[in-house]
Design a binder for these strands. Structure first.
Lengths: 343, 343
DNA sequence: TAAACTATTGGAATCGGTTACACAAAATGC
DNA sequence: GCATTTTGTGTAACCGATTCCAATAGTTTA
């Protein structure tokens, strides 16, 4: 059974392809198609189950009704759920979503952007990696619609939706301090990305404001690309080398997860031996016993803001050059891992 | 700056579009393009950064080099990671991936299949919902390549990659029995899907083989579509109503997660008050204290088998009519939640 | 030397829509 | 009653790659 085309429809109705096209694209009124003709066409289309060939349409119009979603890791709780919401919203607006994970690798990210470029996506939602400055600038120069989420490229003006990492981190640290913790260890990854540097700044500022000092040795940075075991070992060593600490601040949720593992290996109990807070929520932190205090990212809000912003840019309501940013405030969720300290 | 096309390349080299096309598609030898010409073309292509327009190619060939991935919930640990691996493997083979979540809703699933059909994906990987029998039959009849994963449609022969739910469940139950548990509660969802019925059968058979009876009241079924709170309440009630139970078998990982929550609410300690095992692994089960014994799905294996099978079908090495199924054995991971019982 | 090949390359139809433009018929104006 | 505008529909160029079918030049064979 051959696929049916507009031509077939037109022939069967003894009308022209133009007429059919106008009807399909809802331009009947604008182009002055008589209601009778329009009905005839619509009925046959339904009867035959005709669907316009997207390749042909795409070739002619240059629009694919497709957006590219580039995240760090679709298998991750945060990005997986972001993806889900973006996909639903995109669908509502007639768009499909291509997705890909960068694994935080610059080359992968570069390839993905180019690859999607070739399959002519109409716009991107991207979680940038550190080294793709050039690619982002190129997209901007060529006026391709895109929105950065979760992290920015330093000194590059773009549309974005990010978390207020600084204030989240500040408030989370503040919560610890208010509960009596003073020797707080900060565990993060080596990274120049704004999201990470802002978190550190927030932590430092909260400590400074409370007139607390942060000795260099109580800050640990690990390599993102190291294996889980290696990171756990590193954290274990760090914890053992810093028995004075009364609380730990993990800068990301996966660090928090690995950190809890490390603390168990050190036979330390949360929160009696040491309190724990983490940036980013996930199922584990909520259900663990004790549950973990976190600065949570409002996933739904981030996802919806980013797809809405992108669609605006695509529809040109929002010129690419007029950059707009949404800064989402994290929510501090206080759980059992950081109770008031008893002096 | 206008996009450059094959025509531009051909013109600049004073050659024909045909020649350029042959070179691009690696048919130089076959079509007898001289090495000199080939090099000339390749060099200019690289220099100009030319990429063939996928819409045009798609229109002409009818192939989109795209596969559709339809899962239950991309935000879920299992499917998120499946998606990630499938995407990487697809990419290696020159394919892009469209994805969508059904949320286990028949209508959504139907729409997604049709939608992808229109954007002419070359093949599907689908986690079926219960009510899409007709759609699957239609795909089959029209000879569209697809592979079902995670669950089958009863009495419909298709290519598939699923878990051996029966044996996983049998072995997991067996593990409990071997460790001395006899009054085992089974908590599942209302579902006719083979994956769920097989799990129950495996459980029942293991019990029967051990000459243990399963009273009706020790089996609980909840509604998948109910809210998390409601399910947790239901489980709580069930646990309180069945104090005789010495172990709980959760048939899915999200039930396990909610169940642990419920047990905490009942002030019951795992495993001293009651042992716990669950189908499907996740981070939580591994890191929880005590950690939870599970029948784990080998995610990587499932993902790779399914994409490989689909690509085979697409390449016609594997006719759609010659259905092939891969049955993956789950791995029983014994952790702290199900120790040997002391009499 | 003409015929028959072979090795390369080019011309042009084609895929299925979109849309500028042309054109006919009907309506309106003067 | 003729010119002009409005209304409705058809024609055909075009998007950019693929591929069948020639075509040309150079070689070999009879």
């Amino acid at each position: 059974m051959k696929k049916i085309s507009m031509k077939d429809i037109a022939q069967e109705l003894n009308t022209s392809i133009t007429t059919v096209s106008f009807v399909i694209n809802g331009k009947s009124a604008e182009m002055g198609i008589s209601p009778a003709t329009e009905k005839k066409v619509r009925d046959l289309i339904k009867k035959r189950g005709f669907n316009p060939n997207s390749a042909a349409r795409m070739l002619r119009t240059g629009k694919s009704k497709t957006i590219g979603l580039i995240v760090e890791d679709i298998g991750n709780y945060f990005f997986g759920n972001i993806a889900k919401i973006i996909e639903v919203e995109a669908n509502k607006n007639g768009y499909s979503v291509f997705f890909s994970s960068t694994e935080n690798n610059d080359d992968t990210a570069r390839q993905l952007i180019n690859k999607m470029r070739n399959s002519s996506v109409d716009g991107y939602i991207i979680t940038a990696t550190q080294g793709i400055r050039e690619e982002i600038l190129k997209l901007k120069k060529e006026n391709v619609p895109f929105v950065l989420i979760d992290r920015l490229i330093p000194d590059v003006e773009t549309n974005y939706v990010i978390l207020d990492n600084y204030s989240g981190s500040y408030n989370l640290t503040r919560h610890l301090i208010d509960n009596g913790y003073q020797k707080i260890g900060f565990i993060s990854i080596f990274s120049e990305m704004s999201m990470m540097t802002e978190r550190e700044k927030g932590f430092q500022q909260a400590m400074t404001d409370a007139k607390l000092t942060v000795p260099a040795k109580s800050i640990l940075k690990v390599n993102f690309s190291d294996s889980e075991e290696k990171i756990i070992k590193t954290i274990t060593r760090y914890v053992k080398a810093n028995p004075q600490l009364d609380a730990l601040f993990f800068a990301t949720n996966y660090l928090g997860v690995m950190g809890i593992d490390a603390l168990q290996k050190c036979k330390l109990t949360i929160p009696t031996d040491i309190a724990v807070v983490s940036f980013d929520d996930n199922d584990l932190f909520r259900l663990l016993s004790p549950s973990i205090t976190v600065a949570a990212q409002p996933i739904k809000e981030i996802a919806i803001q980013s797809i809405e912003l992108l669609l605006k840019v695509i529809k040109k309501e929002q010129k690419q050059s007029m950059t707009v940013g949404e800064i989402i405030k994290p929510e501090i969720i206080i759980r059992e891992s950081s109770p008031k300290i008893k002096k």
